[in-house]
Design a protein around this nucleic acid. Structure first.
Lengths: 338, 338
DNA sequence: GTCCGTCTTTGAAACGTTTTCACCGTAGAT
DNA sequence: ATCTACGGTGAAAACGTTTCAAAGACGGAC
């Protein structure tokens, strides 16, 4: 089953290979009858142009890569979706890859993408990657950091203003009347987590008459939330927080489940705020108040920024930041029995 | 910023290109001192081998593709994850792509994967694809159909036994005492949906003294579930089903939310069973009884089957089927106030 | 009838890699 | 000192495509 190449097509159609290539890339340059013969030959041979050959000649492919820690996380999935939509509008295809939170696999995938000479690389990560991306850029592959504000001005990035998000979440908890508030999340070394905490503690500081407890839970999943919930239940009631700000929705849902099943009323006894506003925040039996980033806009911003970099256009604003919104739902409405 | 090639490395290291190639692919054939000079040259130039060049010469790359309708769906995400794990054990990388339920984009991505001469293609789809994959196979790219039993013996596939899953779900509802049961899902043209319904109605038929109503809801998301729930609430109470089997968990969670907020007690008034057992089934405030496929095993089975096809090994069992399990939780335990 | 311009077609070169094969130098055996 | 074996090296060909320069075909204007 030898692969069929452009040469076979040319022979069968009785034309030169150059003509077949023209048919594929500049259809206007080839006459109607030859076009038809070529079309027939392609169909009957099942010819599929080799990307390798084309790429070798052209020096680049029309693919971009998106490397995320975990595409199954609705947060990244949503971004991937909007990126794909925009990329398809601009005529490039997106290859997704999961780094699985492993730096080793992150590096491996970066290298694979480089080997494939993708036009550009989009990357979301839980750890700083500016230096690695700088090396990649030096070798010729531009990139956009997604979901995390880059700390160098050479590295374009698109992110949410997590400081503002944290501030909004915390202000809301204070507004509804919570005073002994717990921030749940981790590890604090992750920029997104640190920023949210920073915004939150800023809000508490300004408000004054409230306390902020930090519960470090690096496992930001439903399961991690269940653990935190159990730990809170084990405390005497007066030691429990009356407001909880979880660093993402999964965590918040887990916490909420344990508390409610343990007899703590949400939102009467404790108000809970999540982050990301994923599909399940709204679908929960006690719908979850959350912070929503408008990720649809992400796709356009990210892809367009990447193309600016690819085409070496002047980038006036390398760090695009989106402002998140607070979405109030039942998990905080009615705190204290109001 | 001209790309640096193997030739530049050879010049800087003062050796022939063939030697550099040997260093990369057959390190044992090159002497220690030249190896060191080459290593230095590669590092200082930032050389990344071009996949295009290599692939052109070799005729194939070490990449496989997984094309799914929607990687953000936990069901496919889990599969993708286990596939990636196994693939990485076998030394190939996986590129993911989202078809977004659009056949047009499905075809486009298939073609892109073919152009890239992936070693093989994994595909999940909501529609029959055997004929398209047959064409692809004829052109030289083997594939494995994932999550759907192929209807030809030439097309390898790995799937769950959805008929059995449907039967288990329904038997359980009958066991706990439900008699007026609704099956929610659609479109019925989708094999997975049809199979689950077929298993379910088989169980009802055998049992005898129960009715099965089919509620066609093609939007198998939380939102779709909310709609169905609202429709059920609008009925007079005696017209409502006392058992609901939703074709996936998202749908079930949406239905449950509307019903509970509308004053219907779950599981006392109505028992609900989902399908897929995703993370949120367990995390719901009323944890959801569901049907669980052991998708971890999927990865190994799928990738190994694909490699059998790639290496033209004799495939004795083209259709691997996994048996799903019933996971009983609060949404059915205690039906009727028991 | 000749010339010119336009439109189409052609063949060859080039892209970056791997592999094959021939060659060279060295070491060990005679 | 000569021969043999062998490991390491280098030059060149091949992979499939696109592009480019040049040649060819054709029709219209003089």
């Amino acid at each position: 089953m030898a692969r069929v190449g452009i040469r076979d097509v040319a022979v069968l159609a009785g034309v030169a290979v150059g003509t077949v290539s023209n048919y594929l890339n500049h259809p206007d340059r080839v006459s109607a009858d030859k076009a038809q013969r070529i079309r027939y030959a392609i169909d009957s041979l099942g010819f599929i142009p080799s990307n390798a050959g084309r790429q070798l000649r052209l020096g680049t492919s029309s693919v971009i890569g998106y490397l995320a820690p975990d595409v199954s996380n609705p947060y990244f999935a949503e971004i991937a979706e909007s990126v794909e939509r925009r990329a398809s509008e601009r005529g490039v295809t997106v290859f997704l890859a999961n780094s699985h939170r492993s730096q080793e696999r992150e590096d491996a995938y970066i290298e694979v993408f480089e080997q494939h000479r993708v036009q550009g690389l989009l990357m979301s990560s839980h750890v700083p990657v500016e230096d690695r991306l700088a090396r990649v850029r030096k070798r010729g592959t531009p990139s956009v950091l997604v979901g995390q504000r880059a700390r160098t001005s050479e590295q374009p990035s698109v992110s949410l203003d997590d400081v503002s998000g944290g501030r909004q979440a915390m202000s809301h908890l204070l507004d509804v009347g919570a005073r002994r508030i717990a921030f749940v999340g981790g590890p604090l070394g992750i920029p997104q987590v640190a920023d949210r905490l920073s915004g939150a503690s800023d809000a508490v500081r300004r408000f004054g008459a409230a306390t902020l407890e930090v519960i470090d839970q690096p496992d930001r999943t439903v399961r991690g939330g269940l653990d935190v919930g159990a730990a809170l239940l084990a405390r005497p009631a007066e030691m429990r927080p009356d407001g909880i700000f979880a660093v993402n929705d999964l965590l918040a849902l887990g916490i909420m489940q344990t508390l409610v099943l343990g007899g703590v009323a949400v939102p009467r006894d404790v108000a809970i705020v999540g982050y990301d506003d994923n599909e399940f925040a709204e679908a929960s039996l006690i719908p979850l108040t959350s912070i929503r980033g408008r990720h649809e806009g992400f796709g356009v911003a990210v892809v367009d920024l990447l193309f600016d970099a690819i085409e070496r256009r002047e980038i006036t604003e390398p760090h695009r930041m989106f402002e998140p919104d607070l979405v109030v739902r039942a998990s905080t409405e009615g705190f204290g029995g109001a």
